[in-house]
Amino acid sequence: MTTPQILPATPAQQPAACGCDQLLALYERMVLIREFEDGVKFLFLEGTMPGTIHQCQGQEATAVGVCAALRADDFITSTFRGHGHALAKGLSVQELLDELFGATTGCCRGKGGSMHVGNMAKGMVPGIAIVGGGIPVAAGLALAFKMQKSDRVAVSFFGDGAVSEGAFHEGVNMAAIWNLPVIFVCENNLYGASTHVSQVMRDTHIARRVGSSYGVRAEQHDGNDVLAVYEAAQAAVAQCRAGNGPVFLELLTYRLTGHSRRDPCHYQPQEEREAWASQDPIDRFARALRERGVIDDPGLEAIRTRVRQQFDEAVQVARCQPLPSVKELTSDVFA
């Protein structure tokens, strides 16, 4: 069993270069992801929503902290577990929900579904559900940015499981030899599906492995501390924009929900789950905000209520959105 060894006992203290409004915006975005995921889980289990789902409850700080350091015209690649990345990158609750309901108003017109959400206009490549598949793609985006003499950066989100794929090693190596402006964000939640990291790698310190293997700046951070993530991402973005990429960030976190669908997570020891539940990134940030006097309990509750309302309204709309006509089966195959 791996316990959250590197997590600090107290919440993040260093005031990041962040105003109160910005801190609260980070908090609200994390709450939005949590409420979205909990609400979608309910709709799915209720049978309202088709398909399968992979959710990110417990991992909100990685998506929000990283995307807060990006511009709208920077790009991210994501995975089968992409709802949080999408909301963090600025996709709307409505376009995501509509997609999950299979409506033609969804971000991918209902053709993509939960595993492939994305919006090119907002800097998110549709989710790549082949483990590791997005890593070289992000390097390719970054290569284009470099060739175009743009200062945009690409970010690839992926899990600890992806580190075992060839695509990971090939993609990181090419980014390294060509100094590409890409940030590889490994959300290490200790499991790839049901398999614990210790079963698939001898040295489970992924950042150390990557740093020594590929000669890139590689850091391990507390992925449940949104400010720590934000600061690390800001530094990585600055380095990439200055032409000194890539950067590798390993963010330690934990999935507080099933791998997919109705997964009961019997492979996770209960003490481990409880230890990580006590490190819930939203609770931790709320505590930090309260201690700093940024907000009080009623204020936090008001955010929660507002977000919940926003989600509920979007669900009402999504239920009535038009489904594609059968003619659309053959559209979008070619440009």
Binding site: G102, K111, L329
Partner: peptide, 16 residues
């Protein structure tokens, strides 16, 4: 099936 990738939404998947 039509010469298309598999679509997600049930209306189109059923048509596929």
């Amino acid at each position: 099936s039509a010469d298309v990738p598999v679509p997600f939404t049930p209306v189109l998947e059923n048509a596929y």
